[in-house]
Write a protein that binds this DNA or RNA. Structure first.
Length: 780
RNA sequence: UGGGGCAUCGUCUAAUGGCAGGACAACGGUCUUUGGAACCGUCGGUCGUGGUUCGAGUCCACGUGCCCCAGCCA
């Protein structure tokens, strides 16, 4: 379930108004790279929202650029989407629609809305102008329909080389929206398309294909990311001219809505940068478990459920955001906690000899796969074995050999322990998980002074220890390689232009940008160790995810692990509240924007404006409103007109704050006289501000006279205590807890009580009186 | 600099003009044969300045900051 957001609000309204019968969305990747976590989040929005509304989401490949797209990517993205758990009917392809798209382009030409341009790309860029200079028409802009038709046909026929001509929409070369300066609809590309082969040598642009394919697919809500906001104007323009005519006469008219992108801390998601990581050998491939690709995450052992939970927690908004990687890690741990049986593995072995056990001693312990809390939380009282079979908790154990010689983790022994250390120390004790308490009698060091072996004794039942450590039998454990993955980059925002620790000696151009992000690669993003895992795992399915106790969640690398040469990937560590990173750099000094400079006291005004300002002020208009009015003749004119019928000081606020935007846009439907009449009502006390505000908004919507609305609906301010008191009593009686909270000091609740009574009276209570009465009651 | 978009705890995200709430992180505690999990608690936020209003995160004005747009990429 996708949590409510600005898009679901739009859909709710659309459904309510009957604009659509069914919600249809689409997820439109371009098959020119691997899907990554960003795609996962976007697809969660597209598929999730459609699902929530009982609609459908189509997977449509946006394959309009033959030079970069490949079947390989179609396959991998399709696999990734299925893996995530999304369901769709048939996959669609923009390339399946090429013939219809061509027809629609012809239609635009016939309407005089599109033309073939024949200037060079450089020339076209020049003619487009710049952000502050309007474009100029190409000499070919006024070609006849016939000539355009003929040229376009010949483009399709392959008579011209790449770049000779393009088809452009004839929109507006002077538009302040650069996207509207006659966008390209079709270009010539002599290249083999992975699906249509050599059938076409002209290809539709993103803008043209996206809008038309959406309409062909029956899409109702076309969701995309924020960088396409400006493109929406093209989308709507195309629909204005094409929708409703064949072939777009049998599906609803689609609309585009944009949401903010999400990126993730400590990684990069731009295709170009990911490609650099692979090509430069910084990772071992697209499915390297450190990569944010779904292939990489899958190989790492992350489950689709965890990724969906993550996407859900990240949410949707209209702001680009970079998400705390802790959120992903939490989603993974949360998912695996209930999915991964516990076993023991030692990643950096240190030999332990239990001197008080005889040579060759071996006993088999039966240790539980699950900790007490997972057992308790099981809904059916059963728990899973690694194969998935659910059994009673007492059956969910595995045999663990206990022998005279063991391995423990090197980190679990310290000659010179830091304060608070709870594991083994010389002469100290520790509990071996499931096997009893041992005491370290002495340690043996190697030539370099490193500890190579501990000599310990197994103590009796009554022995105590502060800590518990994991272990494996030296003779019976299985050797294994462990791949310990960590964040790919050392900084949370490797793509950011500046970093605090970095000097910017070279005022580098774009060439430095890449070296930049690569310089933040974490040299320890992969550590390979060789150690041991308990032998029970040999019998488990290869895709079993484990929690290696006290260490992390792991599974066998699906490519490299073999039964006789085990390789485990660490999916994520356990949360560690002890070993706190020393490098925890909280001083991520939040650069608060420097304290706002002194605002200019009075913005520059012309002499004329200043005069108006003074006049308004002298007529009782507040300073702030007067300033706005002085600068906006349109508002001032409206106010002057209204002031013929009511007091100017009382009107100004309404003109500026409530009607201002509408007056500016010349959309105002309330006349100055009507406003004045309403304000007089307000001044007379027969209505309150709330009523006036609501009525004004309604009038602006419907065009009805506000005073008429007041009369028709019988609105009047309730100003007698006799009417309000019973309502107040009722609200207080219904919320005894709030009353108590208020009396014990939470005075912010006054707003709550006022709000409740206002709601009861549909906004008609006199708020001042109400507050007064409430004060009295609540004090008593 | 033209146009557009955006701004709420460290991070993500809620709040018909009416209690600024939740999640993650952090911190503290309970519990624990995982320094895990769970549970309890603490810390912490409306970009700034004015205005409208009984009441503003929400409405208005003016600022500030960040992002997008001048591909025959998407």
């Amino acid at each position: 379930m996708v949590s409510p957001n600005f898009i679901t609000e739009i859909i709710d309204a659309d459904l309510e108004a009957g604009r659509y019968e069914k919600v249809v969305t689409r997820f439109p990747p371009e098959p020119n790279g691997y899907a990554h976590l960003g795609h996962a989040i976007a697809s969660y929005i597209d598929f999730g929202i459609a699902h929530d509304y009982g609609g459908v989401c189509r997977l449509r490949f946006d394959d309009t650029n033959p030079e970069t797209e490949k079947q390989e990517y179609v396959d991998s993205i399709t696999q990734d989407m299925r893996w995530l758990g999304w369901e769709w009917d048939e996959t669609s392809f923009a390339s399946n629609y090429f013939e219809q798209l061509y027809e629609m382009a012809v239609r635009l030409i016939k309407m005089g809305k599109a033309y073939v341009d024949s200037v060079s790309p450089e020339e076209m860029a020049r003619l487009r102008g710049s952000v502050d200079k309007p474009g100029t028409p190409s000499p070919y802009r006024e070609r006849s329909v016939e000539e355009n038709l003929e040229l376009f046909e010949r483009m399709r026929a392959g008579e011209f080389p790449n770049g000779a001509h393009v088809l452009r929409a004839k929109i507006d070369l002077a538009s302040p929206n650069m996207k509207l300066r006659d966008p390209v609809l079709y270009r010539i590309v002599h290249a083999e398309h992975y699906r249509t082969g050599r059938k076409w040598c002209i290809y539709p642009s993103y803008d043209f294909a996206q809008a038309t394919s959406d309409a062909l697919d029956g899409v109702t809500h076309s969701l995309c990311s924020l960088e396409f906001v400006d493109n929406r104007a093209i989308y709507d323009w195309l629909m204005d001219h094409l929708w409703g005519h064949p072939p777009l006469d049998r599906t609803p008219r689609p609309h585009q809505y944009e949401f903010g992108r999400r990126s993730l801390e400590y990684t990069v998601v731009s295709k170009r940068k990911l490609r650099k990581l692979v090509a430069g050998g910084y990772v071992r491939g697209w499915d390297d478990p450190r990569m944010p690709t779904l292939a990489g995450q899958r190989r790492r052992g992350v489950t689709p459920e965890a990724i969906r939970a993550f996407a859900s927690q990240v949410g949707i908004s209209r702001t680009n955001r970079t998400v705390d990687i802790g959120l992903l890690e939490h989603a993974i741990r949360d998912d695996l906690n209930h999915r991964a049986p516990r076993v023991m593995a030692v990643t950096r072995p240190l030999k332990v000899v239990l001197e008080n056990l005889p040579e060759g001693h071996e006993q088999t312990l039966h240790l539980a796969y699950w900790p007490h809390d997972v057992v308790q939380e099981s809904p059916d009282g059963l728990v899973a074995l690694p194969g998935g079979r659910r059994v009673r908790p007492e059956e969910a154990t595995r045999p663990v050999p206990f022998t005279r010689e063991l391995y423990i983790e090197q980190d679990d022994f310290a000659i010179d322990p830091p304060p608070g250390f709870k594991r083994l120390t010389p002469g100290g004790t520790v509990r071996l998980r499931g096997a009893g308490v041992i005491r370290c009698e002495r340690f043996i060091t190697g030539e370099a002074g490193e500890v190579v072996e501990l000599r310990c004794t197994l103590l009796g039942e009554n022995a105590s220890a502060k800590g518990v450590i994991h272990w494996v039998s030296a003779s019976r454990a299985l050797a294994a390689e462990f791949r310990l993955y960590d964040r790919l980059f050392t900084v949370p925002h490797p793509e950011a232009k500046e970093h605090e620790d970095e000097e910017t000696e070279d005022e580098g151009g774009p060439a430095h940008e890449d070296r930049d992000f690569l310089s933040f690669l974490n040299p320890k993003s992969l550590e390979v160790t060789h150690g041991y895992v308990e032998p029970s795992v040999a019998d488990d399915p290869a895709d079993t995810r484990y929690q290696f106790e006290r260490s992390g969640y792991f599974w066998r690398d699906p490519i490299d692990s073999r039964p006789e040469a085990l390789v485990f990937n660490r999916i994520v560590t356990l949360k560690d509240t002890w070993g706190k990173e020393a490098e925890r750099k909280t001083p991520t000094a939040k650069r608060k924007t420097p304290t706002a400079e002194r605002q200019r006291e009075v913005p520059d005004l012309t002499a004329e404006q200043r005069e108006v300002l003074e006049r308004l002020k002298s007529q009782g208009v507040g300073e702030a409103e007067a300033l706005v009015l002085a600068r906006e003749p349109r508002l001032e004119a409206y106010l002057s007109e209204a002031a013929k019928h009511a007091e100017m000081g009382a009107l100004a606020g309404w003109v500026v704050n409530d009607l201002g935007p509408a007056i500016r846009e010349e959309q105002v439907r309330v006349t100055p006289a009507q406003l004045a009449a309403l304000v007089r009502l307000l001044q007379g006390g027969s209505i309150n501000t709330r009523i006036a505000k609501d009525v004004l908004a309604e009038a602006q919507q419907s065009g009805e006279d506000p005073v008429t609305i007041v009369e028709r609906r019988g609105l009047r301010q309730l100003s007698d205590a006799g009417t309000l008191e019973p309502l107040i009593e009722r609200v207080l009686a219904a919320n005894p807890d709030k009353v108590a909270a208020y009396r014990s000091g939470k005075t912010g609740l006054m707003g709550f009580f006022v709000g409740q009574v206002m709601r009861e009276t549909q906004g008609q209570a006199n708020p001042q009186l109400l507050q007064e009465l409430l004060n009295r009651k609540l004090a008593g």
